[in-house]
Write a protein that binds this DNA or RNA. Structure first.
Lengths: 248, 248
DNA sequence: TTGCTCCTCACGTCACGTGAGGTGGC
DNA sequence: TTGCTCCTCACGTCACGTGAGGTGGC
């Protein structure tokens, strides 16, 4: 007959944990010796090991209590579910390993060099400081969420700035920030932007990425749209054109 | 500028978690708008994502606070340690997957058939019920701790019972239970046991396993020794003989 | 006698979850 | 006006950890 300390050492749990399992009704209270000490037999040890294995696998104690008093079939089914859960936990941990590595490699995820260069180029081209700041905000969000892809995006964007037509449109949008939402120049600008995007999609210089996640889209449009009624209107006009062209 | 709910959705944490990080000083309180709502910029989102990645990797919040205000070198070193910790966590999870599978396959780890047969055989040979119960206790402990190996051990043990010399020694030990610790027959019995073990080790029928873990040895000897002074003495005599023969 | 194990409360910890009660934006 | 988001306390949860104060075994 073993004492609580011996059992704890054998199984690899703390004495307190065993007492806790008694309190929660997971493990029946064993008989006491003359001094009031708990005395365990081998069956109690085997039961405790089952509890430990299930608990380490992430099963809540309340669930373990259910399982121990359940039938063999239910037990077996639960085991297979737990096994699946462990498999996906392992996958999650491997993902986290990647993200942790990116945290280190990405110099604490401050803005990558590529983007700093891109923002400097915008200033050279005469883009307002206000728009540069908005761009920066967007890139910080993108870099935080997609650390692995942001370098490629930035390279793509920077290449775009070599296209005179893209520069013209970009500067026009920058100017449009302060326009009224019913300014007569807005529809023409929207047309030019949609046409440019369409040519891009078909040309040899197709962008390698798009933003699909609805949370991202909502966020980015609120980010940019909310700061200027004209831009808000520009977004609406652009969407109308895209729908009309069957691109929706 | 984003509200707390937008940030939470974008990063994938709860609103409550963000407020908690503010309370713990992990994330600086952002400015408030006219209604007293918190308003976040992209840098706050990037900081929050760093916190989330570290937290999901199992780093305590207090440690994250330290890391965020630490230098680049310390940060990089911590990252590498966290990466190592994740690697070993993955290994642990894979081990747990195995143990969970054994829990299912082992019919809830009750005594395997092999051992039930072995215990029945002992009864047939005239072993006392007291010793059979002690054997059972030992096997339950062993089966709980080494579920994968216990079947092989039981097979080995059962093969031993076909050896007349082993049976003779086993029954003699069984009888010795009630002897006085200074009984004159004990030294001879100890000699015979040591000699048998030595022959075994050299013969073609070497046992495939031994018990090495000191916790196990202490436990098993207390399990068997404490119930009988004669057995206690027998263990001491056997150890003396083994040491004398240079086997210690 | 000293040191170690055991006992029973009972409060502490960690990272939030969950109402409670109230206000602001569309 | 209704429904949704936001706000601040403040207590609850989960699986134990950690003394507090006392007794038994070697």
């Amino acid at each position: 007959m073993l004492t609580i300390g011996q059992v704890a050492a054998y199984v690899g749990v703390t004495v307190r944990a065993i007492r806790h399992y008694h309190q929660r009704g997971l493990l029946p209270e064993p008989p006491r010796d003359a001094s009031g000490y708990r005395r365990y037999n081998a069956d109690a040890v085997a039961a405790l090991i089952r509890i430990k294995i299930l608990s380490e696998a992430g099963v809540p104690l309340s669930r373990i209590a259910e399982l121990l008093s359940a039938g063999l079939a239910q037990f077996a089914e639960a085991i297979s579910r737990i096994d699946h859960a462990l498999t996906s936990q392992i996958r999650e941990l491997e993902q986290r390993k990647h993200r942790i590595a990116e945290l280190g490699a990405g110099e604490r995820m401050y803005l990558p060099e590529q983007i700093v260069g891109y923002l400097d180029r915008l200033r050279e081209l005469g883009v307002s400081e206000r728009s540069v700041r908005l761009e920066r905000e967007g890139w910080v969000l993108a870099a935080a969420r997609y650390p692995g892809q942001v370098a490629a995006w930035a390279k793509d964007k920077r290449a775009s700035l070599d296209d005179p037509e893209f520069r013209r449109l970009y500067l026009a949008c920058d100017q449009a920030y302060g326009w009224a939402p019913d300014d007569p120049r807005l529809p023409g600008l929207a047309d030019a932007m949609v046409a440019f995007a369409a040519r891009r999609r078909e040309g040899p210089h197709r962008p390698e990425w798009t933003i699909d996640d609805p949370v991202d889209v909502t966020l980015l449009s609120s980010q940019f749209g909310s700061s200027s009624p004209a831009w808000q209107r520009l977004t609406e006009l652009g969407q109308e054109r895209a729908r009309a062209a069957g691109l929706g």
